Computed example of a mutant assay.
Amino acid sequence: MNIGEVARRSGVARSTVSYALSGKRPVSDQTRRRIQQVIDELDYRPSATARALKEGRTRTVGLVIPPADARLTSMQLGFVASVVEAAARVDLDVLLSPSGGDHDGSFERLVGGRRVDGVILMEIRLRDPRVASLAQTQTPFVTIGRVAEPDGTWWVDVDYATLVGQCVEHLVDLGHRHIALVNRPAGMVAAGYGPGRRAREGFAEAVGRRAVSGSEFCCEDDIAGGERCVAEILAARPATTAIVTVNEAALPGVQRGLERAGQEIPRTFSIAGVAADQWAQEFRPPLSAADVPALEMGAIAMDLLVERLADPDAPARHRLFVPPISLRGSTGPAPRPSARPAFLRPTSPTWLRETAED
Rank of each mutant, 00 (worst) to 15 (best):
G4Q: 07
G4T: 09
G4E: 09
A7F: 11
A7W: 13
S15I: 13
S18Q: 09
Y19A: 01
S22I: 00
R25W: 08
S28T: 06
S28D: 05
Q30H: 14
T31C: 02
R32C: 09
I39V: 11
I39Y: 00
E41P: 01
D43L: 00
P46G: 00
A50D: 08
A52E: 02
R57E: 10
T58D: 12
V61T: 07
L63R: 02
V64Y: 04
V64R: 05
I65P: 12
P66K: 04
D69E: 14
R71D: 15
T73S: 15
Q76G: 08
V80K: 01
V84A: 13
A86I: 04
A87M: 03
R89C: 02
R89A: 08
V90C: 10
V90G: 13
S97G: 09
P98E: 05
G101Y: 05
H103S: 14
H103V: 03
D104Y: 09
G105I: 01
V111C: 06
G112W: 01
R114Y: 05
R115K: 11
L121F: 04
R125F: 13
R125V: 05
L126A: 09
R127Y: 05
R127V: 03
D128M: 00
S133W: 08
Q138N: 09
G145Y: 04
V147D: 13
A148P: 12
P150H: 01
D151G: 12
W155I: 06
A161H: 07
L163A: 01
H176L: 02
H178T: 12
I179S: 06
L181R: 11
R184Y: 06
A186S: 11
V189E: 12
Y193Q: 02
Y193I: 00
R200H: 12
R200E: 15
G202H: 07
A204L: 14
E205D: 14
E205Q: 14
A206L: 12
G208F: 11
G208T: 14
R209D: 14
S213P: 11
E216I: 10
C218M: 03
C219H: 01
E220P: 11
D222K: 06
I223E: 15
I223Q: 15
A224L: 11
G225K: 02
G226P: 13
V230M: 14
E232H: 02
E232T: 04
I233M: 11
L234Y: 08
A235Y: 08
R237S: 07
V244Q: 13
T245M: 10
N247K: 08
A249L: 09
L251P: 15
G253H: 07
Q255M: 05
G257Q: 07
A261V: 04
I265P: 12
R267C: 09
S270M: 06
S270D: 11
A275I: 01
W279F: 05
R284F: 14
P285M: 03
A294K: 03
A294Q: 08
G298R: 06
D303E: 15
D303L: 03
D303H: 10
V306D: 10
L309P: 14
D313S: 04
D313F: 06
H318E: 12
L320N: 05
L320M: 14
P323E: 04
P324M: 00
L327S: 06
G329R: 02
G332S: 04
P333A: 02
R336N: 12
A342W: 00
T347P: 09
T350E: 12
E354R: 06
E354Q: 07
T355M: 10
E357Y: 03
